[in-house]
Design a protein around this nucleic acid. Structure first.
Length: 514
RNA sequence: GCGAGCAAAGCAUAAGCGGUGAUGUGCCGGGCUUCCACCCCGGAGAAUAGAGUUCGAUUCUCUAUGCUCGCUCCA
């Protein structure tokens, strides 16, 4: 199935809709429909239970989306998520304004170095580089240019003065490396965090950000959770929640959205033991993905070469989406950066007393962070297939089927009277439905021919269909039809629930993850 | 954000070089129907939005919005 068909299918069968569609949509925001929300909840349940329920030493929290503005200062988001950007109108290339100016400084620095090397050759052993730099007129001029440019740039950045940055670029006659022209747009501040305000009077004082990641809610609650849950290191805190980023380019359906949901677990460990746990979670998380039937060939690790400022090791688990291998989950060794920063900025001691070592320390953190919406997209794009199956006459016909792992399927079982214009069959069917609804997610359908109803359930990934026929009224047996194999077996009505739950229950899936 | 392309019932597609918008599927109602998209009858449903040109615009022009791709960015 190509990507377009997947998006189309998601809409047609109530999985994902474009946000605000009746108003022509809102870019990079999507809504989940009736089947979508069921699938998404199942993904979250699978994750949550694998983490919290299956580990004695992992507990959950649900922290607020609003947090104290200083948190984003400490985490580095305020600085790192703010870039002054400028476009060259001729090449349509975009640059960071500060990097252009630094590039200009680097060029001059290169010239200075050339002069220095020339002089070194000329003077031989007697050459004193320091003295040369301080006395050579041309070098002094050039160094002054660098100092002036960088000095003014830093001041403009500190003042958030975009106009000054632009005029500096123009004054320095910086040209686009691609087009070679100096035809620049205005410099614009791009802020990846969404801001809003606390209280109802606008002003800097009440400025708040919607969280760009859920992790900080865990870090700032580290002490609360550790004390109230009486956890000992190593232990983890898990959270599922919304995060918000003002992406420059938001594309590829629900892969990159402005409002998205993360499933994060921060695991607190002894300093020096972080690599052991990094490896542990690397393996454990891969198992989790494969346990629901995602083939190993569609998953791979990708080690980060450029580490973020907080990490001493980082990798992604990538999934092969229809548009290529892309990040699905990140596993990062975050060192003590986050707790350390918060400790410094808040003035609170964010430490753990380790009774075995008999000492206090700021724990190190290993993070696993998976995008819930990406997981959703991975499941949908991998499981949606078109295939040839035999029809009523045994000839080949195509069907579109979502081959979700039964535990993730939105609807676990459909209850279908073979015909709808027979009171006895309808009543028996409704009785079965009314019993099953206490156990799992079921759907009743009496419209259209039985084959069409099977196909309809296939399209949303329902693993089982129960069909009630005249024989049911005589001997209390029904047909149980299985989605993937198309097999039909005849079983007593009172065994239906057990049979369906055996495959669709989350419990049995969890046993495979251990 | 820049550039290019695109925008038609729920979905997928025709036709229309300015004059009645068609088909398949899906949906709703009814009939028929004993196990993998049966058949029959009936019904609802569309030109992304706004402006302009025109007697008349789905068609031409402009603007906005959205989508796709490329660039840029990416914790």
């Amino acid at each position: 199935m190509d990507f377009k068909q997947i998006v189309s299918h998601c809409k047609e069968y109530g999985f994902v809709y474009q946000s605000s569609e009746v108003y022509d949509g809102l870019a990079a925001v999507y809504d989940y429909g009736p089947n979508g929300v069921l699938l998404k909840n199942n993904i979250k349940e699978y994750w949550w239970k694998s983490m919290v329920q299956m580990h004695q030493n992992i507990v959950g929290i649900d922290s607020a989306i609003f947090m104290h503005p200083k948190i984003w200062k400490a985490s580095g988001h305020v600085d790192a998520f703010n870039d002054p950007l400028v476009d060259n109108k001729d090449s349509n290339k975009r640059y960071r304004a500060d990097q252009l100016i630094e590039g200009y400084a680097d060029k001059i620095e290169a010239k200075i170095k050339k002069d220095v090397e020339k002089a070194r050759k000329k003077f031989g052993d007697a050459f004193d580089e320091k003295q040369f730099r301080e006395t050579n007129g041309r070098i002094i001029d050039r160094q002054a240019k660098i100092d002036d440019a960088l000095g003014r740039m830093n001041k403009a950045l500190a003042d958030d003065n975009m106009e000054a940055l632009k005029s500096l670029i123009e004054e320095l006659e910086i040209a686009c490396p691609v087009s070679g022209t100096k035809n620049w747009t205005d410099v614009r501040q791009f802020n990846l965090m969404f801001s809003t305000q606390l209280g109802n009077i606008a002003g800097e004082d009440g400025k708040l950000y919607l969280r760009p990641e859920t992790a900080q809610g865990i870090f700032v609650n580290f002490l609360n959770v550790q004390k109230t849950s009486r956890q000992k290191i190593p232990f983890g805190i898990a959270q599922i929640g919304k995060a918000f980023r003002n992406e420059i380019v938001a594309r590829q359906f629900i892969f990159r959205m402005r409002e998205f949901e993360q499933m994060e677990m921060q695991f607190f460990v002894r300093p020096g033991e972080e690599m052991k746990w990094y490896q542990y979670w690397k393996d454990t998380r891969m198992k989790w993905h494969q346990a629901i039937g995602t083939p190993a060939s569609k998953l791979r690790y990708h080690d980060h070469e450029n580490l973020a400022h907080y990490a001493n090791a980082a990798l992604d688990i990538e999934f092969e989406f229809p548009f290529g291998f892309k990040e699905l989950e990140g596993i990062h060794s975050r060192t003590d950066f986050d707790l350390g920063s918060h400790q410094e900025l808040s003035g609170r001691k964010l430490q753990y007393f380790d009774p075995e070592l008999n000492e206090n320390y700021v724990p190190y953190v290993v993070e696993t962070s998976i995008g819930c919406d990406r997981m959703f997209l991975a499941q949908v794009s991998h499981n949606l297939v078109q295939e040839e199956v035999p029809d009523a006459e045994g000839k080949s016909s195509t069907r579109v089927v979502m081959k979700f792992h039964p535990s993730l399927a939105p609807i676990k079982c459909a209850v279908l009277p073979l015909v709808k214009n027979h009171e006895g069959l309808v009543k028996a069917s409704k009785d079965i439905f009314d019993e099953l609804k206490f156990e799992t997610s079921v759907q009743y359908d009496e419209k259209d021919a039985i084959g069409r109803r099977y196909r309809r359930q296939d399209a949303v990934g329902t693993p089982y269909c129960v069909t009630i026929d005249h024989q049911t009224l005589e001997d209390q047996t029904v047909t149980l039809r299985e989605r993937d194999s198309l097999n039909q077996i005849r079983i007593p009505v009172d065994q239906v629930s057990a049979e369906v739950l055996k495959k669709t229950n989350m419990n049995n899936l969890l046993k495979e993850v251990v």
